[in-house]
Amino acid sequence: MVDSRSFLTLSAITTYPKEDGKPLYYVIGLSCQVITMIEIDPQICTACGACEVACSLYREEEVFTTMRSSIILHREERKNYYGVMLKREGEVLLGRPEGVEVMKEGESSDTGGGGKPILLREPCDNCTDAMCVRFCPTGCLKEV
């Protein structure tokens, strides 16, 4: 049984011409891939920002920076309001003290937290054994 986040991929389709010149199609490989997604539990986040550097390293491989990540830490410091935003394909996952909300690309959040131009970043590519999860010290980020 494949869950709703799974999809089937035809890993290769090759065409061999028949004698009459019409193509024959052979499915060479059929695989079932379960997409890993990152979930956020904002209640246990401590705003350490390790996820930004970890994801950036995954994307850039040989540097430490905060500028390449699909995830951005948001903090309003004086009132200690903080959370993380994760860019996915076409949407942004907001993990804030109020809970988790999906904001469609281009929409505004009514309570702040969607402010930065995260849309310039690459979306999360649902990698497995994700660096952001491995280096999240609290378990706030999980692969599901």
Partner: peptide
Amino acid sequence: RFDACFNCPYA
């Protein structure tokens, strides 16, 4: 709420 400095496992 508890806070951590950059990349610290101890908040």
